[in-house]
Amino acid sequence: MDGTHDLGGKPGFGPVVRGGDAERTFVADWQRRVFGLVGLGLSTLANTDAFRHAIERLPAETYRAGYWTRWLAALQLLVDEDDASVRRTASTARRDLDRRPRFAVGNAVRTQADGVPGHTRLPGYARGRRGQIVRHQGAWVFPDTNAHGDGEQPQHLYTVAFSARELFGEDADAHARVSLDLFEPYLSKEDG
């Protein structure tokens, strides 16, 4: 879904702040507890995809209130919803899949152009773009369905490389590329 969380390539951000608290994982003890609680909660309450989607569904101001604040708010949301359909079923997300991969290393592919209303791991900046398969990463639980209680529906996963100019236009760095790990349903084959 489109949202505050989908930050890649978004304009208007300044320098990355470094030093002091920015170098640390926790700056207060309650944050450590949130980390522990989420770890515990995710072993019983919901799968990782549902947790990520809960973060995405937070109001923008809650999302922007900081990393551990949104973890806590997302955990609270999942507790309130207590949705049995998104309970965690296994500690790992890799799956065996009989269906053969549709794409091979070197294939040209294009990502789907349209956004989706629910959870997805295709960032907005990489929609409708042409890239190249650089690695097949095996088959994994599909976050787009698993986050919504629609089952694991495992899919092949590929590392796909894009030139920075394909993603961000002719002003982008000519000597930069961005790679993403994308699920097969996001991709269609391109000629050449």
Partner: peptide
């Protein structure tokens, strides 16, 4: 002239 490769961890890799 150094090529930069950015890896966006969009799945479980």
């Amino acid at each position: 002239n150094v090529e930069i490769r950015v890896w966006d961890s969009s799945a479980e890799v």
